[in-house]
Amino acid sequence: MIAIIDYGMGNLRSVSKAFEAVGHRAVVTRNTRVIDDASRVVLPGVGAFGDCMANLERYGLVQSIRKSVQSGKPFLGICLGLQLLFTESEEFGRHEGLGIIPGRVRRFAAGPAVKVPHMGWNQVTLRTDCPLFDGVGDGADWYFVHSYFVEPVDPSIIATTTTYGISFASSIWRDNVVACQFHPEKSQSVGLRLMRNFGGWL
C-alpha cells in the first residue's frame, strides 16, 4: 500500500488516480499509523512552502515523514514535496523545511526569457541511473509548475537536471528517497511510467 500524505493542500486525487491507473493501490491519508504501516510513502505538494510546513506540523506529520525516510522504504516527493525535504526556503520570507536533505530552496530570477513561475513542459536530462527513470527516455518532456528550485549541498544526489535560464536539479535521489520538481501525475505517459516504477522499486 502506498500512503499519499494529505496535509490539507493541493490536488492529491491526481496522484492517487495515477497510481491506480498503473495498478498500484494508494491511499490519501493524514493518519500517522497508516503512514507508518505503508510500504511506500509519497509526499505530494502544491501550495505555499510556509503554509505547508505549518500544516505538516499541525497534523503531527513531521515525525511520520522522518520515520518513513529513515525506515528505508521507498519515499517519493513531488514538487513542493521535494522542496519541503530541504533545510530552508526563501518563499514569502524565510521558512525552515524538514531538513532531511541539506540544501536551500531558491526562487528563479525572472528575466525577459525566464518567466516565473516556470510553467509547462520541459526536458529532463538523466544524470544517474536512478531506477525510477527506467524506460523513460533521456530528454523527455515533463510537466513543471513552480517558482522555486532546490540546491542540494551534495551535488551527487542530483538525479536529473533541467534548463530554465539556469540548469537546476529537477530531481534528486538519495538511498530510498527520490523527489522530483516536475509532476509525474501530470506528465502523461512518462509520468505514469515513473509511478509504475515507484510501485515496484526496492
Binding site: G10, V46, G47, A48, D51, L80, P117, H146, S147
Partner: peptide
C-alpha cells in the same frame, strides 16, 4: 488565494 494555495495555481 496565492498565499493560501501558491501562485502557480
Amino acid at each position: 488565494a496565492a498565499q493560501r494555495f501558491g501562485t502557480q495555481c
